[in-house]
């Protein structure tokens, strides 16, 4: 019995330490956002009264509303576009599958093996040639269609009852009508998962906007954050406030939709 108790104690101790380590840096970040740089460096762990000052200093140094809007617009457009394109394709590959389409699907899946670093130079040249530098279009184009999302929607179409499609055909619905009126409403959870993955990827994207967003007004939050650490003197209160602002939306999504979030992550590896 004592051995069992020690074991249980160690279990809780292990989990508590791990949970504390996981949460602490974020907690520290939020607390530091309300403190002056001197207090942050002094190791202060209590909320302070510098939130407003930090906010004023931050907005004087960087156009945060613009960067937030850029990040949001890019992520939202990319999410809507890829959900439409990839769900249509995934449905098509499954419902109308034949040899040719199966082969094409297998080829498309190979695209998932291509690391971004390997294609960023040609992509940058293409975007430059089309005069699309610093635009949402340039941000979105390479991520509208991904092998992974098409695969995700094809898998979900596999569980869609074929009888429903045939019944709808007899009722005179067009093929596109069947997709929109039958498939889309049933597959809401797949859409939610796909939306979370795509939105998060767009919101957090760093390397691609770093290359293409050359105009100051087009910079997204990660780029603005990264710029704030350049220079010799760092105002840690200001910096942590900026990071907190950029992290809040994704933490909110995470806490509200944890289940879809976890499903999205697991699905992303299959």
């Amino acid at each position: 019995m004592t051995r069992y108790k020690i074991g249980t104690f160690l279990k809780y101790l292990f989990l508590t330490i791990a949970a504390f380590v996981s949460v602490f840096p974020l907690l520290w970040m939020f607390i530091s956002a309300t403190n002056s740089s001197i207090d942050v460096l002094g190791g202060r762990l209590l909320p302070g009264s510098h939130l407003v000052t930090n906010f004023q200093n931050l907005t004087a140094r960087a156009n945060i509303p613009q960067a937030m809007w850029n990040s949001f617009r890019n992520a939202a457009v990319s999410t809507i576009a890829s959900l439409i394109v990839c769900s249509v394709a995934g449905y098509g590959f499954e419902i109308y599958h034949d040899r040719g389409k199966d082969l094409l699907m297998r080829i498309l899946l190979l695209s998932m093996m291509i690391p971004f670093a390997a294609i960023m130079i040609p992509l940058f040249m293409m975007v430059g040639n089309f005069n699309l530098l610093s635009t949402t279009t340039a941000f979105v184009l390479p991520s509208v269609a991904t092998g992974f999302l098409i695969f995700l929607f094809r898998q979900s179409a596999r569980y869609f009852p074929y009888e429903l499609i045939e019944a709808s055909r007899l009722d005179g619905l067009s093929e596109l009508g069947i997709f929109i009126r039958m498939y889309v409403p049933v597959m809401r959870s797949t859409y939610a998962t796909a939306a979370i993955i795509t939105f998060m990827a767009g919101w957090n994207s760093y390397l691609w906007p770093l290359i293409i967003m050359q105009n100051a007004d087009s910079r997204t939050m990660p780029l603005v954050l990264s710029n704030l650490i350049a220079g010799y003197v760092t105002d840690y209160g200001l910096l942590m406030l900026a990071v907190s602002i950029s992290v809040l939306p994704t933490i909110a999504i995470f806490l509200l939709l944890q289940k879809s979030f976890a499903e999205g992550i697991i699905a992303s590896a299959r």
């Binding site: 996981s22 974020l26 460096l41 957090n204 760093y206 650490i229 760092t234 990071v243």
Partner: peptide
């Protein structure tokens, strides 16, 4: 939830938090 929470942060954001935690005059 606590253990999974770090996944909700963008790579740039958490990098900056770590950079600050481990600065010479940092926490």
């Amino acid at each position: 939830t606590a253990l999974f929470l770090p996944c909700a942060t963008s790579l740039v954001s958490y990098s900056i938090v770590f950079r600050s935690l481990f600065a010479l005059d940092g926490f």
